[in-house]
Design a protein around this nucleic acid. Structure first.
Lengths: 251, 251
DNA sequence: CCTAAAAGCAATCATTTTCACTCATAAATG
DNA sequence: CATTTATGAGTGAAAATGATTGCTTTTAGG
């Protein structure tokens, strides 16, 4: 990869994520940490980012952590772990993937960029923009745009999916309850997820442990249909799941 | 191949791709890397490109971020004038509008926000995001995303439009030639524009004066089908247009 | 608060990639 | 035919990268 391209990628990643680790940038760009550090020094000289111990910080939004080191929310670290695990194990060359509009699935995109020939279909506008920015062949579903999540929903999107089959599909969830029901707050988004599952050879649900045992309004599937990828679970969480779940713990 | 032709090719390739490697150019032109390097040195001397280690970079806009591109685009004042004129005279309450992915049409969105009951259909991702942000009912066409303009194109988008009729449609153009042909560089974008015109009661083409007399590859319509909104024209520009044009000058 | 382990860093060096320069060949020009 | 011009290949130099090392900062556990 060309130096300039990599540095642009880094800049946009840092600005989008507000704060990130050297190791994440290294994974994303598939270069060594040495190179990332050199890039960060340059970018800091140009005033495009701010370097902090452990990584880099967006320079635009300084209303953040004043301390000189980075500190992620536990959630965000988990999301990256889960995304990385999913890409590493379940995305292959020339796959046709469906990726839904959630934040965890969004983290998968930069990692997919280094896998050749992948096509991403998504109903998330930001996910699509990120994928295109990473040079991935991208198809965005059409339809109404939800104001809060920027997810695309509606009949048009569902119809469009009728003519597609996915090698794999990846989606988030807002809850997995004791019966193994996968739920989300919005009916229309649930319909999209349901359709994606129906048209995919394999489905992976990305869920950090906080979603285990939760329940929401709209059911879009059952744990039996999918593989759940999550972070390390404690025994309390495991008790909240059905026994027959196909569960992968990212680490 | 002729040296000058090759250099033209290199220049346009670099500008289109924003950044590329010497090896890409070598493959594209079927010449040695030595020759490419010599060409790049010349082109850099002429200020047409910027050389970087491993390749060359467009000197014009370092705008990977299209939304940023929109803000710093050429003739911005003119575009705003045209957009304002278009909204003021041709957008009414409860209209169903098609707005294409160009920068001028993008400027219309904030102005439309104050008109009640309008629905916007667009193939521009940034246009859609802006419209949603302004609380406008927004439908985004689905399909492939073009990497350079972030326009959505392809069969899916065309099919989706089959079931729609627009009160009015607004689009940019890259050229209006002496015969009144409306042109744009990309075939697939042209197809979208063509379909929009076919499904709209009225079509308005937004064009600053620099496009008058220009010609591009893909024809998407003729001036007779549409109303052209432009800035004040001098007599030279007027000479480059057919007589029978329905022309409005914004000011 | 202190200390040990872990994580992150700058500095350095070896390797790989890219470059500038040179030279030889071939085509165009007078 | 001699001369200029464009090209491609080769070579040592320069730049970029990746890995290693020893030092500093941070974290975790008493």
């Amino acid at each position: 990869m060309l130096t300039q391209k990599r540095q642009k990628l880094i800049e946009s990643y840092v600005n989008q994520h507000e704060l990130c680790r050297v190791s994440d940038l290294s994974k994303m760009t598939a270069t060594s940490e040495s190179t990332i550090r050199r890039d960060l020094i340059q970018l800091e000289d140009e005033g495009l980012i701010k370097r902090v111990h452990g990584g880099a910080q967006s320079v635009k939004n300084f209303a953040h952590d004043v301390s000189q080191h980075i500190r992620f929310t536990l959630n965000h670290e988990d999301k990256i772990l889960i995304a990385r695990y999913a890409v590493k194990h379940y995305v292959h060359e020339n796959d046709y993937l469906f990726i839904d509009a959630g934040t965890t699935s969004y983290e998968m995109v930069p990692l997919i960029a280094s896998i050749a020939g992948v096509t991403i279909v998504t109903n998330g506008i930001e996910t699509a923009l990120s994928a295109v920015g990473h040079g991935i062949n991208t198809i965005l579903l059409g339809g109404k745009i939800k104001e809060d999540t920027h997810a695309i929903v509606g009949q048009a999107a569902l119809e469009q999916m009728q003519s597609m089959n996915f090698t794999a599909c990846f989606m988030g969830t807002n809850g997995i309850d004791r019966q193994g029901k996968l739920t989300t707050p919005d009916l229309e988004e649930a319909a999209i997820k349901k359709a994606a599952i129906a048209h995919a050879d394999r489905t992976y649900v990305l869920s950090d442990s906080s979603k285990i045992g939760e329940r929401n309004f709209a059911v879009f599937g059952n744990i039996k249909q999918v593989t759940v990828i999550t972070t390390k679970l404690n025994s309390q969480h495991q008790g909240l799941l059905p026994a027959e779940v196909d569960l992968k713990e990212a680490n």
